[in-house]
Simulated scan of single mutants.
Amino acid sequence: MEQEEIMDERLSDLTDLARRISDLYAERFDVERDATWYLGKMSEELGEVTSAYLKLAGQGRGAGSRADLENEVADLLGFVLLFADWQGIDPGKALQRKWGSYLEAEKV
Rank of each mutant, 00 (worst) to 15 (best):
residue 32 E to L: 10
residue 51 S to G: 06
residue 8 D to L: 13
residue 37 W to Q: 07
residue 32 E to K: 08
residue 37 W to Y: 11
residue 80 V to Q: 14
residue 89 I to A: 02
residue 92 G to Y: 06
residue 103 L to E: 09
residue 22 S to T: 10
residue 101 S to L: 09
residue 9 E to P: 00
residue 74 A to E: 03
residue 16 D to P: 00
residue 32 E to Q: 06
residue 99 W to P: 00
residue 92 G to T: 12
residue 43 S to I: 00
residue 38 Y to L: 09
residue 17 L to P: 03
residue 50 T to G: 03
residue 61 R to T: 10
residue 78 G to W: 05
residue 62 G to L: 06
residue 92 G to P: 04
residue 38 Y to E: 05
residue 91 P to I: 02
residue 86 W to F: 10
residue 79 F to V: 00
residue 11 L to T: 14
residue 11 L to W: 10
residue 38 Y to I: 01
residue 20 R to N: 14
residue 22 S to E: 09
residue 65 S to E: 07
residue 54 L to N: 15
residue 47 G to D: 02
residue 29 F to A: 11
residue 56 L to R: 06
residue 87 Q to C: 12
residue 33 R to H: 04
residue 33 R to S: 02
residue 34 D to Y: 07
residue 65 S to H: 04
residue 23 D to K: 06
residue 73 V to K: 04
residue 47 G to L: 01
residue 36 T to E: 11
residue 9 E to L: 10
residue 30 D to W: 01
residue 79 F to P: 09
residue 97 R to M: 01
residue 24 L to R: 07
residue 106 E to G: 03
residue 2 E to V: 02
residue 26 A to L: 05
residue 92 G to L: 04
residue 31 V to L: 05
residue 80 V to I: 07
residue 5 E to W: 08
residue 30 D to R: 08
residue 34 D to H: 05
residue 41 K to Q: 15
residue 33 R to K: 08
residue 3 Q to I: 13
residue 32 E to I: 03
residue 46 L to M: 06
residue 108 V to F: 03
residue 103 L to N: 15
residue 3 Q to M: 14
residue 8 D to K: 15
residue 2 E to H: 04
residue 3 Q to A: 14
residue 13 D to W: 11
residue 53 Y to E: 01
residue 68 D to V: 09
residue 97 R to P: 00
residue 100 G to P: 13
residue 79 F to E: 06
residue 39 L to F: 06
residue 106 E to M: 11
residue 76 L to C: 09
residue 65 S to G: 05
residue 4 E to Y: 12
residue 15 T to Y: 10
residue 7 M to P: 00
residue 26 A to K: 03
residue 23 D to C: 05
residue 25 Y to P: 00
residue 87 Q to Y: 01
residue 14 L to Y: 12
residue 17 L to V: 13
residue 37 W to D: 12
residue 84 A to T: 13
residue 103 L to S: 11
residue 89 I to Q: 09
residue 101 S to R: 12
residue 55 K to I: 00
residue 3 Q to L: 15
residue 43 S to E: 12
residue 1 M to F: 02
residue 7 M to K: 15
residue 73 V to T: 03
residue 49 V to E: 05
residue 62 G to P: 09
residue 102 Y to V: 07
residue 56 L to T: 02
residue 92 G to A: 14
residue 10 R to K: 14
residue 73 V to H: 02
residue 108 V to M: 03
residue 5 E to G: 03
residue 54 L to E: 11
residue 49 V to R: 00
residue 54 L to T: 11
residue 64 G to R: 00
residue 55 K to N: 01
residue 87 Q to S: 15
residue 20 R to T: 08
residue 60 G to Y: 07
residue 30 D to N: 13
residue 35 A to T: 11
residue 86 W to N: 15
residue 20 R to M: 12
residue 43 S to Y: 02
residue 9 E to R: 15
residue 29 F to S: 08
residue 107 K to N: 07
residue 62 G to K: 03
residue 9 E to H: 02
residue 18 A to D: 09
residue 21 I to T: 15
residue 86 W to S: 14
residue 25 Y to C: 12
residue 106 E to R: 07
residue 65 S to P: 08
residue 97 R to C: 06
residue 87 Q to N: 12
residue 67 A to T: 10
residue 12 S to R: 15
residue 106 E to I: 01
residue 92 G to H: 10
residue 34 D to K: 11
residue 101 S to C: 05
residue 31 V to H: 01
residue 50 T to Y: 09
residue 98 K to Y: 14
residue 52 A to Y: 04
residue 56 L to N: 05
residue 10 R to I: 15
residue 97 R to S: 14
residue 27 E to A: 10
